[in-house]
Simulated assay, not measured.
Amino acid sequence: MQIRQPVAVKFILTEMAKQQIIQEHRKQIEQLGHELEQIEEQGKQAIEQAMSQGGEIAKQVREQVETEKNNRLMQREQLLQQMQQIQQLELGTEIQNMNVETVVDVRVGDDWSKILMGSEIVVKDGVVVDIRRGGQSFQE
């Protein structure tokens, strides 16, 4: 029988990976800054237009603009915190990156606890350096 199982993809933190992550976070923070500016400008216009339709509508528009601004500010703060965490991590640290799925053959007599332990793929600078099943290195 075959079952589908998640596979953890981890990467080993190298100086190159650290710089790529920080650079990507900076781009995202910059993009959020542009979005905040747009929300501010478009929000002012929308509020002015809503004022002509009545105070209640203007209030709703203002709340919507504030919600959007707060969402972007929270995203920016999370990115800043992640950048700080990455900068503090030691090189060589394994970091969970994503999950993918694989198909696993299950047979009578298999050790279910090892199947439940799952699999991991470890990547270093874009190259797979280890595949683990049940916590043990696995070579196909």
Rank of each mutant, 00 (worst) to 15 (best):
R62A: 15
Q88M: 08
L91A: 02
G109M: 05
I131Y: 11
A58S: 09
E63H: 04
Q88C: 05
V122C: 12
F138C: 10
E120G: 06
Q75K: 10
E140D: 06
F138Y: 15
Q49V: 01
Q20D: 11
S113Q: 13
A50N: 01
I47A: 05
Q60L: 11
Q38D: 15
D105A: 13
Q85Y: 06
V100N: 07
R4P: 01
D105N: 14
I115F: 10
V108T: 06
T102H: 08
F138K: 10
R76D: 07
I131C: 09
D110W: 06
K59S: 15
D111I: 02
L80Q: 12
E68H: 00
M16D: 14
N97A: 15
L36M: 13
E37Q: 12
I12V: 15
L80I: 10
M51C: 01
R133Y: 11
A8N: 10
L89A: 08
D110T: 03
Q19V: 03
A50F: 01
Q31Y: 09
V61H: 08
Q87E: 14
I47K: 06
V108N: 06
A50D: 01
I22Y: 04
I39W: 04
V104C: 07
Q75S: 11
Q75C: 01
Q64R: 11
H25Y: 12
L36H: 03
Q23W: 06
R72T: 04
Q53G: 08
G54R: 04
H34R: 09
G134M: 01
K27P: 00
H25F: 13
E77R: 07
Q81R: 13
E24I: 00
E35Y: 03
R62Q: 15
L80H: 02
Q45G: 03
G54W: 04
Q96F: 14
I131G: 07
Q81E: 14
Q84W: 03
I22K: 08
W112T: 07
Q23L: 07
V104P: 06
Q84C: 02
Q60A: 12
P6F: 00
Q136S: 12
V129P: 03
G43P: 02
I115L: 15
I3G: 14
L13G: 00
R76H: 03
Q19R: 09
S113F: 03
I39D: 05
S137F: 07
Q42A: 04
K44D: 14
G109W: 03
V108L: 08
V61K: 10
F11A: 09
G33P: 01
A8L: 11
G109S: 04
T67R: 10
L80P: 00
K27S: 13
K59L: 15
Q38T: 10
E41D: 06
M74L: 13
R76M: 15
D130A: 14
Q2F: 09
Q20W: 01
Q139N: 11
E120T: 05
R132H: 02
I86V: 15
Q81P: 05
G33D: 09
A50T: 02
V123Y: 05
Q2H: 07
E77V: 01
E56L: 07
G135T: 13
V7P: 09
L80C: 00
Q96I: 05
M117I: 02
Q75Y: 02
H25V: 13
Q45C: 00
L13W: 00
K18W: 01
G43Q: 02
A50P: 01
E15F: 01
